[in-house]
Design a protein around this nucleic acid. Structure first.
Lengths: 244, 244
DNA sequence: CAGTGGTCTAGACCACGCC
DNA sequence: GCGTGGTCTAGACCACTGC
């Protein structure tokens, strides 16, 4: 019952996949899993490795542990709702059954100043691409994105792909540049939409809205995008789940 | 430079606190931390313990790691406020180094109507406890919580514990009623703070703020709390991480 | 090449829940 | 007492980065 040590994936990753499969097929919510020591013997790995795998399953909300009692299948495994939602506007709108549309208002190149060199973790003076986009759903203006990219990673970024073909930025990242998003980290605050933005969004001046700053990381933990957005306050509801 | 093994807190937890303090005082965003082996020698702990501490700091977004290069201070650490990974106001404020305080404005019992029976998954007519609280940080009014609890689960809830002793609601849930929070599900939107709330919060009328609705679940997937909150828009920043 | 984080092992003791 | 998860150690080798 051992694992392959020559795989690309580490042993604890293989264990995660194996346990996830088992939970899906053979367990019900609140069922008790094998104990750490039993898993250890069954798959011939050390307890540390077992605990790494279980910690990952705990983090994604598949299981919970109780000191002195055991490890159990999470109780909402029967719920259909997805935990950890979507950060892509295009995908968000599609999943809500609304038709997303993006208009590029500006695309330009500049040199990174102190601020953006820090935000993108590049050197001052390195070239960055600025992309300003108006996002609509079923024709209604929803939000404005100001995206800053390290130009060296995304040479020859094409307005045609983004606007005419209406591909999502993340789709272009992945399929045209091989940059896979691993983590998107968003800071969300409330503010009054600026007059200029309110005009583009076709809303009244001084309307409240969401201000978002998003940093996106690839698998090497490099920053591939920094975006500042203004979103209509009356059109968005955020769902946040805190798991313990 | 060693740690105390007889503390209530485990060694890696003490390390987390120590490193967090150091980062706050002596480091800037994107600075390189001591390597894992250096930390190991400096504090006389094993590398595993160091890595447990660093993983925790990574999870709460204080640091990031780069294979072959080192461990670095996260780039948002220049921001002053950040909320996320915590749904408890008390804990949030403590982790920001601010002194939390709670004033109970109202505590009453009533029978559940259609709306609250649905929100708490109880029968219409079952008793519920309403708790209205003003939350302050360093004496500044920050938010107003309206909390609804199934009265049968929380008999004899004590204002003394909550107000005089300033214990957090979740602490009382856990230690006095054995109800451990498994999941808090928050819906977050933007709105204008009502005049009545603006008065309590000592802010100008028509100020924008966060509107929150939170449902909290225990291990049996029962609902133990439903809370509606209004929070000052100028005092909160939410952090959301999307992992892929 | 040396130094870094990533993975893995074997073994130990502690704290908790239950009978 | 016994089995469970929680913490900790010492040591090993791998994979990646930068010189």
């Amino acid at each position: 019952m051992g694992f392959n040590y020559n795989e690309k994936q580490p042993v604890y990753g293989q264990l995660v996949d194996e346990l996830r499969k088992q939970i899906k097929n053979n367990y019900k919510p609140n069922d008790k899993l094998l104990s750490e020591r039993e898993i250890m013997r069954k798959y011939e790995v050390s307890r540390n490795t077992v605990r790494e795998a279980l910690s990952e399953l705990e983090n994604i909300g598949y299981i919970y542990r109780q000191h002195g009692k055991g490890t159990f299948v999470a109780s909402w495994m029967d719920d259909t709702t997805k935990i950890g939602d979507e950060y892509s506007f295009t995908e968000q709108m599609k999943s809500l059954g609304r038709k997303p549309e993006t208009k590029i208002i500006e695309m330009s190149e500049r040199k990174a100043d102190e601020y953006f060199s820090g935000k993108l973790r590049i050197n001052v003076g390195d070239p960055i691409v600025k992309l300003k986009r108006l996002r609509l759903a079923d024709g209604m203006p929803m939000m404005i994105d100001r995206t800053y990219l390290p130009a060296e990673k995304f040479e020859n970024l094409s307005i045609y792909e983004l606007e005419t073909k209406q591909r999502s930025l993340y789709n272009v990242f992945l399929e045209d540049y091989g940059e896979k998003v691993r983590l998107a980290d968003e800071m969300l605050s409330v503010g009054i939409i600026s007059d200029k933005d309110a005009d583009l969004l076709k809303i009244a001046p001084n309307s409240p809205g969401f201000m978002l700053r998003r940093t996106t990381y690839n698998h090497k933990n490099e920053i591939i995008e920094y975006t500042i957005s203004s979103a209509r306050g009356d059109q968005f509801v955020y769902n946040i789940k805190y798991k313990h």
